[in-house]
């Protein structure tokens, strides 16, 4: 832990002194984490690309503000969160999304598990449909509800950390989470019967 912190502080220090390689190392260490966090926030590959790259650009410009109280990834999470919420506030995201052409390499067919070429077509169709419903359920959430759900449930972050990242109390995190859950239960209510089976409380 101590070692990791030293390593990160050294990286930040070097990057801050203009060492592009040190910054590259930070990017390499974190790009997948941040991209997938951005993907969970936005739900699209192109938006995840844009958002996560914005995050690294902002990070690059604010290297001098990193004081080392948190890990680099927590620092990047915070930037991701703030950038996402700011984008949503400006409401420019949708417009931008519609205008921006997909980069060649970005649109390069991402391989989803359950790709038609690998599984049987019916399961694939079924799973595609479920993916669509999940996406729709996530889309019913406000940006803050969504980020709380993503960080609490998908990332398993403690409520305290999420509260710190969002500058809100742990209590507010809790109520945002239960609001998110209620909304998604409404959106996905039709799955309940089929999934209720076998969902007995494990004793």
């Amino acid at each position: 832990m101590e070692l990791l912190q030293n390593y990160e502080l050294r990286l930040i220090k070097q990057a801050n002194q203009g060492d592009r390689n040190a910054f590259r190392e930070i990017v390499e260490d974190n790009k997948k984490k941040i991209f997938y966090l951005a993907f969970d926030f936005t739900g699209s590959i192109q938006d995840a690309e844009d958002l996560s790259q914005d995050v690294f650009i902002k990070a690059f410009r604010s290297l001098h503000t990193f004081k080392g109280e948190a890990s680099i990834s927590t620092w990047l999470y915070r930037i991701t969160l703030n950038t996402f919420l700011a984008l949503k506030r400006k409401k420019s995201f949708e417009i931008e999304k519609n205008q921006a052409p997909l980069d060649e390499s970005v649109s390069a067919d991402p391989v989803f598990p359950g790709n038609p070429s690998t599984g049987n077509p019916e399961t694939y169709a079924e799973s595609r449909q479920m993916q669509m419903h999940i996406q729709q359920a996530l889309d019913t959430l406000s940006p803050r509800e969504r980020s709380v759900f993503v960080m609490r449930h998908y990332r398993g972050m403690p409520g305290k950390t999420v509260g710190e990242l969002l500058n809100i109390s742990e209590g507010t995190v809790k109520s945002l989470l239960s609001r998110a859950i209620r909304k998604m239960q409404n959106a996905l209510g039709f799955y309940r019967d089929s999934l209720d089976l076998g969902m007995e409380v494990q004793q």
Binding site: F39, I45, P110, V111, F112, Q131, Y154, Y191
Partner: peptide, 10 residues
């Protein structure tokens, strides 16, 4: 259900 969410493998 939400745990069945798939993420693209780049």
């Amino acid at each position: 259900v939400m745990n069945k969410r798939q993420r693209p493998q780049m």
